[in-house]
Design a protein around this nucleic acid. Structure first.
Lengths: 210, 210
DNA sequence: CTTTTTCTGTTGCAAAAGCAACAAATATAA
DNA sequence: TTATATTTGTTGCTTTTGCAACAGAAAAAG
């Protein structure tokens, strides 16, 4: 995704004084925002890593999305239902911009640089989000844990332009991301190793096929 | 989603002569487009219903998305990988607008009304798509067939403002949409009926809880 | 109206996944 | 540095899901 670089400088140099945009920092483990479907909040992750986490009424945890630099998120993108708890948790120290959806097009009176660039580039940011979500759906629609693992690994391998790559998650979180039982996933990982499909060293995976 | 109404008249009255936008009609069962990740194609469904369908290398079919009036789709939203076949199939007669992503912002020389409105409203169309995809992910991350069914039913019920609603799918397609085995899903539907959670009459479902 | 195709409903059996529990290894905090 | 918490790895057992196969119902095609 090379469009990211277009925003890099802009977001780093960001120093808009208008009241409609807030910049906040979070430490690892802190909650960046909880989705409550009242405000029309949108967030841009300037730096760090974060997960959108859901707990359903069974207490099952899912990692809905994993966010990295310049990813966009917030309750404006989500129809929140009552039997879910949804929040975004910082997995590393994060800098985040907050604003509401209405401000993207109804520009603030200041006519500041931020809003000018944002309204131009907003679609590209969302377009990127859509492709990420589609990739996520592609993995989730795989029928078996094995296919989910291999599908996800293959995406990471492609992104990294190498058969070897680091998982962006702990194995515990990976299970929540793939929406499967952790011990069942561990069993499958072991089988994939034993059958010679992958090599695994902590969070470093190497694909041995094709 | 009441923003849809804003577009209704516009898209129906559409009569742009510029070469960058094409309007085509399809009969039920026809393929609207195949995703090949070469062009940056975007489509808007003016009328009808269509499914984005994937066959993976095992031959398993998934319905990735179900499109209705004013939904937006196309390979611009998808990172196509080699071991998938992806295409959009008309489930009813459809009218579709085709254009490429670049045209959304690099407006055509004609400066036609279509592009003017499109560039203003494009973000809202995508935003709507993002919420749909998130809803889709919410269902797919449920761990059991039962929870997937109940989760999906509850969404349809909310949308229809009624405990009773019609499935937009055949039961065969519903299984592909939930990404589960059809016979296992039928078994679960029967249990849900027998245990008094739902009433079912063909494609008409009534929720009997809460 | 008849034939053909698709969809629904069902079942027995096999395979996969979930659950619970625990020990060892790491990482984090005091 | 020691104590505490989290993650990894593993396993037996249970439950859920998938697969294959088939018959009847409904829909589409001729």
């Amino acid at each position: 995704m090379n469009f990211t670089s277009q925003f890099e400088d802009f977001f780093n140099d960001f120093s808009c004084n208008c009241k409609n945009v807030q910049k906040k920092s979070f430490k690892k483990g802190q909650t960046i925002t909880t989705y409550i479907q009242k405000r029309n909040q949108i967030c841009i992750l300037q730096n760090g890593e974060a997960d959108l986490v859901r707990y359903d009424f069974n207490g099952d945890k899912s990692i809905i999305e994993h966010f990295t630099k310049n990813d966009i998120f917030g309750e404006a993108f989500y129809v929140v239902t009552t039997n879910n708890e949804l929040y975004v948790e910082a997995k590393k120290n994060c800098d985040v911009l907050f604003f509401i959806y209405d401000n993207v097009y109804q520009k603030c009176r200041n006519n500041c640089k931020f809003h000018q660039v944002l309204s131009e580039k907003f679609s590209e940011l969302i377009l990127n989000k859509v492709t990420n979500l589609n990739t996520r759906i592609e993995i989730l629609t795989k029928r078996t844990i094995r296919d989910k693992l291999l599908g996800y690994f293959s995406i990471l391998s492609t992104r990294n332009l190498s058969a070897t790559f680091m998982l962006p998650f702990s194995l515990t979180d990976l299970a929540d991301f793939l929406s499967v039982d952790r011990s069942a996933m561990m069993r499958e990982l072991k089988l994939l190793k034993d059958e010679g499909f992958i090599k695994k060293n902590g969070n470093k995976i190497t694909l041995l096929f094709k």
